[in-house]
Write a protein that binds this DNA or RNA. Structure first.
Lengths: 212, 212, 212, 212
DNA sequence: TATGAATGAGCGTTCATTCAT
DNA sequence: CATGAATGAACGCTCATTCAT
């Protein structure tokens, strides 16, 4: 799915897509390793399997690489999320299923998500808006799932919960240095689902603050 | 509280502390504005009120500035958190109070927290560990508050909830572009507290998944 | 008139000439607009109506294009000048007529002459000599016209005057930013002819320096 | 006379002037040799006697060097011309004296003038206007001398003659490959003065075109 | 202690040229 | 003959760091 946002001087569309895929592949792991700023264009070219000159036939700017990377990751995530959402609808416990699927997805795409998380801010303004729009879309999907399952919930709470799920999913990768030391993925998910469903209420001698 | 992590060639301890305070002050807003990588040492020197030569009398490396900044922010946050925790202990609803206080703190220190969040990864390895240790401390404080209030909760769930609170507090600033458009701080806190206490359960025709 | 100076890998003579004409056409306006150095070979190819690969079938070097352009311009100018010279011989005031015709020619070929003037220096040594030889030819024609009309004039003065005419004609285009703001072409020519014929003498209380 | 047109990051004014003088000195001969475009900033730095980093402490852009060079040359020429003009006023044959002095000046500053002539066009728009303004000034000085000496001459003719003198002076250097092969400086000047004073009229069986 | 001029490795980017198709 | 994707040397410029004063 070649991005029309970034012009290339190569005419052959299929080739552009192929080369950009190589590029994204190469760049993601570099960005993950050392961050966008410490990665040089020459390194990107090398990791992509072509020369610096060739790299610049397919982009205009180093930032274009970042955009391509971010765009591609969100594309993946969104596509996968859609599958999850659709698949979850007929289920008995659609929300829980969707959340579990989302966390699994975040586990799978850890590296990519970390890049996304850390480097979006380095994007030039317009590109950033474009990417953040996609993020909103994703949160939107989660909101839909939630309000589908729980039609009585007020929209504000829906929004906050969707945001929380979204963020906590990302944190599994982003804060792996602390989380993945203590939990397996399944344990983490179980806990998150439990918290999501009941909060703290299970363990409360029933809820002073509410009683007042 | 002069950091012993970063050596200076100046002997006068008090002076070192003073200059570093100037430096941190100047650097934070620059880092917030343009990020660590796009901020030059000259800019830092200028914003600190002294020359580039002087800057390098008090640090060895540009990364030292980042470290100093991160360290100072965490110091602030930790100190403030301790106050909160201590103050909250005798209260009737200690957890809720502590959470509310924490969110207010995160609101107040938004700028600083964003810097922290985005730039820690640029720290050299050792410095990063040092800073992340402080983060663990903070999460630890939240864990303490939780398990104090809810002694029955299993430690795994405590850890996950502490992490969630910690992260969501930061997100108030970090994802302000989406959150602060929809909610006032108080609304956001109310929602988060509600979610924390009850999760989704309030709105459920009581909990298919649990019944099974 | 295909230049033997620049070899081509294409055998078909007629084709070579055709392609080179396209090339020259395209290149002149580009050179005029942005100068030789700031014009890229890709731009030349595009303006010529074929691909970069094809361009290089007809030249060896970017400088070859410049040579071809300069050569072609001088060819045009020389051909036109010859017509002028021949036509002027039978006239009553051959010098004046020739000068007027020359200035009109320079007006017509302004763009080309500016390119010539500004870019010849970028030619590699040998090519430059070749082109400058053509310039000498042109000046030679002017000398002929002059000494034909004024057989008594010593050759040194003839040479200087020929040079002056040559240069002032070019200046009409080259210094258009100052000259064409103050004069129409005819006014300029009238003045130049007047100066050429009488110098300053018309306005002098006859010529101190000569009387001594 | 440090140019305020080009900012420097060095504070010490005297030093800026000194370094820029080195720079101009180094750059002129490089530009003369290979032209502005084929001269690299590293070469300029080297020829100036300092590192590339230092070079860029005193300019922002390669084009700034060109501007500085052009500006300095015109400054020299203008200053020297003013001396000439002033000195010539009380003389008996002020115009001739001024012209002779101007040609001598152009001979002396040959290299510089060639650079000026060939590279002004490479200047960015605003800088070009600034420089061309100085050129107009110079032509203006010549106009003054002429109309002072010959008050009856119509201003149009004055302007054309001033332009001619200005250009022919420059051509002594610019077209040296043809002129300096045939003439010594004094011969060239003598011829030019003669042409200026009498044009072609000395050698004419008195002036068909005028008689009509 | 404080200064700021000097340094040069290294960056992002361009573009003339080649050559397989 | 024509194409255009690929190449990489070379460019202009930046900026963290040093060190003489």
């Amino acid at each position: 799915m070649e991005s029309k946002q970034v012009p290339s001087s190569i005419k052959n569309r299929a080739l552009v897509e192929k080369r950009r895929d190589q590029m994204i592949q190469g760049a993601v792991s570099l960005f993950r390793e050392k961050g966008f700023h410490k990665t040089t264009t020459r390194e990107i070219a090398k990791a992509s399997g072509f020369s610096i000159g060739t790299l610049y036939e397919y982009i205009r700017t180093k930032e274009d690489v970042l955009f391509l990377v971010c765009d591609s990751i969100y594309e993946q995530v969104n596509v996968r999320m859609k599958e999850v959402v659709i698949a979850s609808v007929p289920g008995e416990t659609p929300l829980e299923e969707a959340v579990r699927a989302y966390f699994h997805l975040m586990d799978e795409l850890q590296e990519e998500v970390i890049v996304l998380y850390q480097e979006v801010k380095a994007l030039p303004k317009e590109a950033k808006s474009y990417i953040l729009e996609k993020e909103r879309e994703m949160v939107g999907m989660l909101e839909e799932v939630i309000s589908h399952s729980l039609p009585d919930m007020p929209p504000g709470k829906v929004a906050v919960i969707a945001n929380n799920i979204f963020v906590e999913g990302q944190m599994w990768g982003f804060r792996r240095w602390i989380l993945q030391r203590s939990f397996s993925l399944e344990e983490y998910i179980d806990h998150q689902v439990n918290v999501l469903l009941y909060g703290v209420s299970e363990h409360q001698s029933f809820t002073k603050s509410k009683e007042e």
